[in-house]
């Protein structure tokens, strides 16, 4: 049997990165916004992000928060740019579909808070 030289299991190292206080705080905050347990988020991030993106997660999160636009309150509340451009947890298509549904519900007269909460919960199901 031959193994490929240097192809290592990176999971322990990725977990090390996510255990720093800054990362813990960031993951907790993202989890709170998406209604997802931090453990699921960590597992998903370890599987989908490379080590450099994991290292840069807190900085990207801060940058995303700082650049949230005020012109579309629904997109800002859901974190349309934050969770696609700055933190690539969702594809633009997934986010646009979720935003579309949320706009329809708002159009039917449902409350903003409930719509945002439900949309984030639906999006967050992808992590489980």
């Amino acid at each position: 049997m031959m193994d490929v030289l240097y192809e290592k299991d990176l999971r322990p190292l990725k977990l090390h990165i996510l255990e720093s206080p800054r990362h813990r705080r960031t993951i907790r905050e993202i989890g709170r916004r998406l209604g997802v347990e931090p453990g699921w988020l960590i597992r998903w991030a370890m599987a989908h992000f490379d080590m450099q993106l994991l290292e840069n997660l807190p900085a990207r999160f801060e940058q995303g928060l700082a650049h949230q636009g005020a012109d579309d309150p629904l997109a800002s509340a859901i974190g349309a740019e934050l969770f696609t451009v700055y933190l690539p947890f969702f594809t633009t298509e997934e986010m646009n579909a979720a935003l579309e549904q949320a706009r329809e519900r708002l159009g039917r007269g449902e409350g903003m808070e409930a719509v945002v909460k439900d949309t984030l919960r639906v999006l967050g199901r992808g992590f489980a």
Partner: peptide
């Protein structure tokens, strides 16, 4: 491209 680290982790924090 993606980056793999872990060759000189010091754990200094």
């Amino acid at each position: 491209a993606e980056v793999e680290l872990g060759y000189m982790k010091k754990g200094i924090e």
